[in-house]
Structures are given as structure tokens and as C-alpha cells.
Amino acid sequence: MITRAKLVEQLREHQIRSAKSYSAALAVFSPNPHISSRRDLKVALLYAVLFCFLMVSCYVALYLKWFKLSSLFVFFGILLPIGLKISRNRRLKRKRERRLLLPLSM
């Protein structure tokens, strides 16, 4: 017999499994080290859509033989993940420095 506690446990396990499915794929496009809130998810999704738009624009520019514009799109497509990685490292560095400033009694 299925009890309410078993159903709640199954629902909780399903939510945990489904919550982690998108975070690994979008972690590359997140400016934060970990996707922990809906805002982080929306920002990561926005950057992912921007990256896809840049790549599609690059292909269209290549098809139309606009090589300079296509190379510009490739440059921005490469610059986007690198900039996000740099911002992620800066946030982690600031977080580590703040931890070191706390007194040991805390």
C-alpha cells in the first residue's frame, strides 16, 4: 500500500533528479559558480540563447559570404564563455577573501 510519506519521498527524489538535469548543461553560461536560484537559471538561459543566436548569425553570414561579419560573430561567441568564466572566478575569489576576513571564533 502506498502511503502519503512514500509519495512525498518519491516526489522529492523526482524533483531533485529533474532539478539537476538542466544545471549541468547551463553551468557553462552562468556567471555564478552554481545555479542556485531561478534568477541564476534565467541569466544562464539568456546567455545560452545569446550564444546560440551568435552561432546562427555566424552561419547565416557565412552563407551570405560576409566573412568579416562572420568572424566578428565568432569572436563574440568565443569571448562570451571566456568572460563568464572570468567573472565566475572573480566571484569565487571575492567569496574566499570574505571568508578569510571573518574572525576564527565565527
Rank of each mutant, 00 (worst) to 15 (best):
L11W: 10
L54F: 01
R38L: 15
L92E: 10
F73T: 01
A5K: 08
I78P: 02
Q15Y: 08
R12T: 15
G77V: 15
K6T: 08
I35T: 05
A24D: 06
R38K: 14
S70G: 15
S70L: 02
S36Y: 02
M106Q: 03
E13N: 15
E13P: 10
S30M: 02
P31M: 14
I86Y: 11
L64P: 00
R90N: 10
M106N: 03
R98Q: 12
S57V: 04
A61E: 06
I16S: 12
H14N: 12
K42R: 12
G77L: 11
L26Y: 13
S36L: 04
K93Y: 10
I78S: 04
R94E: 13
L92K: 07
S37C: 09
L84F: 12
L80N: 09
Y63I: 01
V60G: 11
V43C: 01
K95C: 09
S87F: 10
K20Y: 11
L80P: 05
L54E: 01
K42S: 07
F67C: 04
T3A: 00
Y59W: 11
K93S: 11
L11P: 00
C52D: 07
N89A: 14
Y22G: 10
N89T: 13
V60P: 00
M55R: 14
A24Q: 09
V43W: 00
F76V: 01
L64N: 08
L46R: 04
Y47T: 03
K6M: 07
L84Q: 05
V28Y: 05
L50N: 05
P103F: 00
V28Q: 04
Y63F: 04
R4C: 03
P31G: 09
L50E: 00
F67G: 08
V60Y: 15
L79T: 03
N32H: 15
S18C: 09
K65W: 07
G77C: 13
A48W: 12
A24W: 09
S71E: 05
E9D: 08
L54Y: 00
F73Q: 03
R4V: 04
A27Q: 14
F67A: 08
R17L: 15
K85H: 06
G83D: 11
T3V: 00
D40M: 02
L100M: 11
L80R: 10
Y47V: 03
R99M: 07
S21I: 15
M106I: 02
E9H: 00
V28W: 03
M55D: 06
L79C: 03
S23Q: 13
S87W: 07
L101V: 08
G83E: 07
L104T: 10
L46W: 07
L64E: 11
S71T: 08
L92V: 02
A48E: 10
P33G: 05
A25G: 06
V56Q: 12
V74G: 04
G83V: 06
L62Y: 09
L104Q: 05
L104V: 09
S70D: 05
E97D: 07
L100S: 12
A44H: 04
R99L: 09
L104N: 04
Q15A: 09
R90S: 10
R99G: 06
L11G: 07
A25N: 09
R39A: 03
V49C: 12
